[in-house]
Amino acid sequence: MSFDLIKANLNLYAILKNLEDLVVYDAETKEAARDWAVSVQFSVKGGPKAYVAFRDGKCEVGRGKCSRPSARLYFVSPRHLNKMFEGQANPIPLKGLTKLRFLTRDFPKATEKLEYYLKPTAELLNDPSYMALNTRFTLTTAAYALRELFEYDPIGRLNATHIANGTVMLKVLPSGPSAHLKFEDGKISVHKGDTKDPTALMTFKNLEVANALLNGKSDAFAAVASGDVAMKGRVPAIEAINIVLDRIPLYLS
């Protein structure tokens, strides 16, 4: 799979997934989304498909096709989609001209807000509420990106072979956010939140520790040895995850 195709998968399946939490945790987007009843289908020629559906103040981002989307955005290639995520291209709207206001004003505003939370500066991270959301979104992005990389990235595929069936949970203490990846006979699914019986667990002592590690600012081994990060259970799965986490910036930096 090409670099652009993997990157497109990460953009659609990992980055966009955060819209679900943006309408929950960001007051401005929450307020704006209260009355949205729109579903947008993203289709990439030779690439991934995903949809974003807003209804009753909630958002769902899913893989594949959405039945009867109110708008459809088409991309001629994975690179075209990636360019849009970088603000350098526009999609081709195939359907949804009646939702023009949403597509040209509301939706871009939400994605800009998402970008704001995903591109921290040292100054922004001094704000505890910003830091909490940046950590949440970064964790979600990492978890969903891992699935794609284990499936398609050459290094990820090699490391996936080291992981036995089971569930690996990543959790920020004391009360989240968290995400877990379920490995079952070569298939990987990702979920936000806790799981009751993980076979491997990686916990971060607090938001600050999680933020530094997930943003690549601290040494994971030293963090584990100092107790800031704890691992238990099937450690080879966590080791494989850590190796593949390092691959994310190659695509999304």
Partner: peptide, 12 residues
């Protein structure tokens, strides 16, 4: 690097 690197690393 790692504080204590290699197979003596305490992470295991």
């Amino acid at each position: 690097p790692c504080g204590i690197p290699g197979h003596m690393s305490p992470v295991v």
